[in-house]
Simulated scan of single mutants.
Amino acid sequence: MRETLLLLHVTTGAAGLLLGPLWLAARLRDRRADGAAAAYLVAVLAVARTGAALALLAPGLAWLAAFGLLTGVLAVSGALARRRAWPHWRSVQPHLLGGSYVALTTGLLVAQTGSPLAWVLPALLGQVPIALAERRLAAAAVPA
């Protein structure tokens, strides 16, 4: 069972890491990209769920299940922010969706390196594209 969960976890994590930039690239070209968005959300929710299950199966790692839950919440909230036109969604959405992608990247780096830097580096480096996305959305809101 653990091997099956791990295979699903790695596969959906890789899918999320590939789909995130595809969705972003489509949005930068002013395309809706509903398919990429839906696929990204499915991948993130699947990797979050399998990650939480794996954490609960491993002795002493149950605390990691919270990261799976948070990653899923970030992705779904980011998608809903724009769709539901939340107040200040242009400021909030890049942080939510960017946060979900940073979580995927962090998981990959922690699993591959085990380095304490892997917990911090993705969040630090992720601030630049998140800030650029926030700036782009804010500029788009200003009437020409």
Results as ranks from 00 to 15, higher is better:
I130P: 06
L121R: 12
H95L: 14
G126L: 06
Y101R: 11
S91G: 15
Q93C: 03
T113A: 00
A118Q: 00
P129D: 05
A79P: 00
V76P: 09
A81W: 00
R82K: 12
S77E: 04
L109H: 06
L117I: 00
R90T: 09
V120A: 09
P94W: 01
A103I: 05
Q93R: 11
L109I: 04
A123T: 09
L109W: 12
G78M: 10
R83M: 14
A85H: 15
H88M: 10
P94A: 05
A85P: 08
L97F: 11
I130D: 02
R90A: 12
E134L: 10
P129I: 02
W89Q: 13
E134T: 14
L108K: 11
L132F: 07
G114P: 02
T113C: 00
Y101K: 07
L108S: 07
W89H: 15
G107D: 06
W86Y: 10
I130Y: 07
L117K: 07
G78R: 01
Q112S: 12
R83P: 07
A85S: 14
P122Q: 04
R90N: 06
A85E: 15
W119N: 06
L80Q: 10
H88Y: 13
L80I: 07
Q93E: 14
A81F: 00
V128C: 02
S100G: 11
G114Y: 01
H95D: 00
A85L: 14
A103N: 00
L125S: 02
P129T: 07
H95P: 01
I130H: 06
T106W: 02
L124H: 00
V110D: 00
R82Q: 14
A85D: 14
L108Q: 08
Q127K: 10
L109S: 08
A133R: 12
T113R: 01
A123Y: 12
S77L: 11
V76Y: 13
L124K: 07
T105S: 14
R90Q: 10
V128M: 08
G126W: 06
G107H: 00
A111R: 03
G126D: 04
L124Y: 05
L104D: 00
L97R: 08
V120W: 10
A79C: 07
L117A: 07
G99R: 05
A103F: 10
L121E: 08
A85G: 13
T113F: 03
A131Y: 07
L104E: 01
L121I: 15
R90F: 03
R83K: 15
L124C: 08
R83A: 15
E134D: 09
V110G: 03
V128D: 03
V92H: 02
L117V: 05
Q127D: 13
G107M: 12
G78N: 11
T105H: 11
V128K: 08
L117E: 06
V102C: 11
S100A: 15
T105W: 12
W86F: 10
Q127E: 13
A133Q: 14
S100F: 05
V128E: 04
Q112W: 13
L125V: 13
L104A: 02
Q112P: 03
S115T: 04
T105R: 13
S91L: 14
V76R: 10
S77K: 01
G107T: 01
P116C: 06
R84M: 13
L104I: 06
L117C: 04
R82G: 14
Y101S: 10
L108M: 09
L108C: 07
A81L: 04
S100Q: 02
A123E: 02
V76T: 15
E134I: 02
A85V: 14
A103V: 05
A133N: 07
